[in-house]
Design a binder for these strands. Structure first.
Lengths: 252, 252
DNA sequence: ACGACGGTTCGGCGCGCACCGAAACGTCCC
DNA sequence: GGGACGTTTCGGTGCGCGCCGAACCGTCGT
């Protein structure tokens, strides 16, 4: 309250909300888009139930999460896709963490290869698919990755509930910036539908938390159909390997 | 330090950094990409010099700002474009502020119309130009808004230092998500060059802080050349008015 | 009806942070 | 060189936040 001329956007509320390690951990757990009961979040954050309850109240007040009572549990989830997007962008800043040590690097590598971002595919798999579908003419490449007619047919052929996605109130397609690849992947209701289909068809399987493991059938599918190979070999060195085999640059 | 399986990205550091109102105000001031001495930031944030110095040390430790001593002053600026991007994305979350009151709404409206985002044009002007240049074939529309040959010629014709921009170490073009329009505008070294040119040519003028005022010559230029009219009438209602007159949707 | 269980609210405790005043350091000006 | 000024460092103080234990409310099971 005060200060100079034009008051800008105030980062205080969301900053305070993310400041506490326990809250940061909770939000990190919810980044996969799932809704989890307060007790589980408390256990994961390493705090007692009362502290967790207050933390969740703070997060809710900041507009980052919402809670819905179901039965005698209370399920908390991220308030919306835009929250996941902003957090994803924030994550791109925090990389300087050295991240040495076996478990951490293995885990970080798995997340970089394929993971769920709120409710859609991300990581090298996500950006690879998005780029391949753009070059294939399934997605128009303006900033929102709009779905083309060919794309609707193609995705329907994969078993994706395209019609349900376009009927949803959310934007059908949106571009979400990836914090590992620094390139966009497909979000929005269609992104969610694609993610759900990949999971239901057994092309990907949840590993730890938001991490995803590409199954054998999924690996074959994405490699043979679109030339995407997100499991870039050793993984040492991280972001290096190119995602798509076929050329994606040049004229659109 | 602990907790469950795969430790995710940690929002704690940047969260803590943005938590204090004084630090948030300082960062807000630096969002225009300028470098300012510590004393000015202290005055703007309403704290004493010692507190400001410590705040800036915290921000520097979090990797958000960098300080360079020049003479007996010490100039602080955002650490890089990616910081500005992430903060811009964060700003999109904080909108729920009612923002009634004359001065605030007028100022917010000016910022929504045209402003500097770190070092490039943003607001309706920024996204309008980006979209117009995509439809004109100056920019390829993949997520990075890559510069085409025609775009290089066209921008050179406007007096933009295109060659200096491509020679810079930064990425030449990047897409930056706008928090008022929720659409992308042109960032990267080319975005900076465009912004500098617009300022030098007198097409825009700095109003308060990062706000920009479109001059008469600039208004004529963008309207007659690309059909962009960022000064959307009353401004009441904010985001409503379409930015570009010519159709931007449809097939790419 | 009762007890078990998950969640929230209420006091209270302790650490940590934000702020300032005083002093030290470095640079510019005369 | 001396003095002024901008900035940082150093102690020290006070408020606020994060945590817990205990108590209170609700739902589920029987």
């Amino acid at each position: 309250m005060d200060a100079s001329t034009g008051r800008d956007r105030d980062f205080t509320v969301v900053g305070r909300a993310l400041a506490a390690p326990a809250r940061s951990a909770m939000v990190g757990l919810l980044m996969d888009g799932t809704a989890r009961p307060a007790g589980e979040l408390a256990r994961a954050a390493g705090v007692g139930a009362p502290a967790a309850s207050e933390h969740l109240a703070v997060l809710a007040a900041a507009g980052l999460v919402t809670g819905r009572a179901r039965g005698r549990h209370r399920y908390y989830a991220l308030a919306g896709p835009e929250v996941a997007d902003a957090l994803e962008a924030l994550g791109a800043l925090a990389v300087p963490v050295p991240a040495v040590g076996f478990r951490r690097t293995r885990e970080a590598d798995r997340l970089a290869a394929a993971r769920f971002c709120y409710d859609h595919l991300a990581g090298r798999l996500g950006v690879g698919l998005a780029e391949a579908w753009v070059t294939a003419g399934w997605l128009a490449d303006p900033e929102d990755l709009a779905l083309t007619g060919a794309g609707a047919d193609g995705l329907r052929g994969l078993g994706v509930d395209v019609d349900g996605a376009v009927a949803a109130r959310r934007p059908t397609t949106r571009a979400c910036l990836d914090w590992t690849e620094r390139r966009v992947h497909l979000a929005g209701s269609l992104g969610a539908a694609v993610g759900a289909r990949f999971l239901a068809a057994g092309w990907v399987a949840r590993s730890s938390g938001r991490g995803l493991r590409l199954t054998a059938s999924g690996r074959d599918l994405v490699r043979d159909t679109w030339g995407v190979e997100p499991v870039g070999g050793t993984g040492i060195g991280g972001t290096g390997a190119p995602t798509v085999v076929s050329a994606a640059s040049g004229r659109a």
